[in-house]
Every structure is written in C-alpha cells, then in structure tokens.
Simulated scan of single mutants.
Amino acid sequence: MSMAEQGAVLALFEGHVHADGEWRLALSPEPPDPAALEFAEQALRAIAMVEDLKPDAMGLAADPALRRLEAKLDLALLLLTRAVLPSGPGQRRRARIGVSGLWIEGIPAMAEAAALHWQPSEVLPLVVHLPVRFLGPEAGGGCWAFRGLAPGLSEALERQVFRLHRRSRASGRES
C-alpha cells in the first residue's frame, strides 16, 4: 500500500464519527445501479424515521394498549419484510463504518471498485447497495471508501452512522 493509500485509510475514521459493530454485509464486483442508490437513500431515511420515532416523544408511553399495538405492528412489518426480501446480504461480520467508508474484517480485495450490500438496521431488514473503492488491507480486513454518493444519500448515511455510533456509546456505558 502506498503512502497515499495509508493516509486515505487513516482519513476514513480519524476525527470522524464512526461505529463499530457486527452487521450483515457483503461485497460484489459489480457497481450498484442508479435505482439501487435511490432506494438506498429512501431506505436509510425510512430507518431513521422508524428508529427516531419514540413513543415517549408523542406522549404514548403511558398507554399500554398503544405500546402493544405498536409492538404488533413492528412484528408484522418485520415478518412481511423478511417474507418479501431476501434474508440479508450474507453473514454477520465485524466492521467499522464511518461517513467516508468502512473497514470490514476478513473480506479480501476483489476489485478496486465494488458494491457494498449492507443491512444497516435490525429494525427494518432492508439491504442498501453502496458503491465503494478498495483502499487497502488493514488489520485483518480491508478498508473501503464510499464513492460517488449523491448529497441526499450521503446525508442519510451520515445520520445512520451517527445513530449507530450513539447507540454503541450508550450500550458501552450500560455495561
């Protein structure tokens, strides 16, 4: 890896919000088509709406009937989505994701350009397809930079990464 690539790998996460975790993800050599990128933006925005909508904020927390109804609706949507969509883009892998790119454990380089297939939420099992560029091997995995994201998709991705970061920090404080 050249010095420029090493600098790029460091720039992915240094000084930027990122989240460490395990997600269903995979890579494929063919880049995603424009319709897949549009769907990715819509899916990330939908995930944000579902995850950010808290019953407490609407004054519904005190009503057990509404909580049960919401839980039933969540379960029905989850089952419907799993019946309609494939189970996910592969196995769960350890990864670090940031607004500029990601590090994935144990996935070797396949081509300089690829498509990331990622299930960013357990709440809605939607798979997003994002274009990535291989930067180089790093600590038992590979570093990939997002490339060519439209501003709306980039903003939606940034919100999801921030939400994942906030959630991992909160779970770290609890344990």
Rank of each mutant, 00 (worst) to 15 (best):
A11D: 12
F13C: 07
F13M: 06
V17C: 07
V17L: 13
D20Y: 00
G21Q: 10
E22P: 00
R24L: 04
L25K: 01
A26G: 15
L27G: 02
L27K: 00
S28L: 09
S28Q: 14
S28C: 10
P29E: 12
P32V: 02
A35G: 01
A35D: 09
A36P: 06
A36S: 13
L37C: 09
L37N: 00
L37P: 02
L37E: 03
F39T: 01
A40P: 07
E41F: 00
E41Q: 14
A43C: 13
A46Q: 01
I47K: 01
I47N: 08
A48T: 10
M49V: 10
V50W: 08
E51C: 13
E51I: 12
D52Q: 14
L53W: 12
L53R: 10
K54T: 12
K54F: 04
D56L: 13
G59A: 12
L60M: 14
L60S: 10
A62W: 07
P64A: 14
A65I: 12
A65M: 13
A65F: 11
R68L: 15
A71W: 03
A71N: 13
K72I: 11
K72A: 15
L73V: 13
D74Y: 10
L75V: 06
L75F: 09
A76I: 07
A76C: 05
L77Y: 02
L79Y: 01
A83D: 09
V84A: 06
G88Q: 06
G90C: 01
Q91N: 06
R92A: 12
R93L: 12
A95K: 06
A95Q: 03
A95C: 12
A95M: 14
R96M: 09
G98H: 00
G98I: 04
G98K: 02
G101P: 04
L102W: 03
W103V: 06
I107T: 04
M110Y: 02
A111M: 07
A111Q: 11
A113Q: 06
A114P: 02
H117S: 14
H117C: 09
W118V: 07
W118H: 03
W118S: 03
Q119A: 03
P120G: 11
S121N: 11
E122M: 05
V123G: 06
V123P: 06
